[in-house]
Amino acid sequence: MTSWNLEMDDDQLDSLKEVGNVGAGHAASELATLIGRKCVVSVPELTCTDAAGIGEFMKGPDTMVVALHMSVLGDIPANMLVLTRRSHAQLMLNYMSPTSAPQAEQNEEAFKLALRQLGEVLTRSFADAISHFLGTNAPYAFTEAINGGKGGIVAGVFPASEPQPGPYMAVHADFFDEEKTIQGKLVYLLSSRSQALILERIEQLLG
């Protein structure tokens, strides 16, 4: 993962973390409602990264991963990601619909469709909470579910055919249920321009 000079003071870094905390907390709460289990998040962290570094957010071996991805437009453009092991994604669907959840090994398309719907709910919850916090407008562009290894996730989120602006500031927090049967990472990816917009907005709010 490439590192860049963050060029922000401690208060600015703290503000970005709190914005991530509000979004991640709401996404975890939405997940808790959907799966009927208590879900919590870790204290958010900040990592300056390029597109290739996104894959490194899933620690451990390069197993199959699911990325639920949403692009946010509007006042503060951003990318939002829910990253989790494929087996954990299956378990989330099973918790949501114990008798009728699509099983990946039987119907991959239905599995991906269900994940896309789950991703839409979680990332919208994340984006809405931040939008409410900052008083900004945040229309959503699209949501997708990407399956693959770490490299596949990066290629899916950032197609090679499209320009990959960077570096990004990733505000990320782990989420998990009480027994840690499901775990994953919520990632809020910001360009330097979007970081500046958030910090400007926070200054206005604090008056």
């Binding site: 905390n21 509000v22 979004g23 991640a24 907390g25 709460s29 808790a32 409602t33 208590k38 916090f133």
Partner: peptide
């Protein structure tokens, strides 16, 4: 005061007359 707007948080103070809960933001 938390962004975790969940039942287990609300229940922590539900029967506590000296406890309250507000979600962030």
């Amino acid at each position: 005061v938390t962004s975790l707007d969940q039942k287990f948080i609300a229940e922590e103070v539900a029967h506590d007359p000296r406890g309250g809960f507000i979600p962030k933001p």
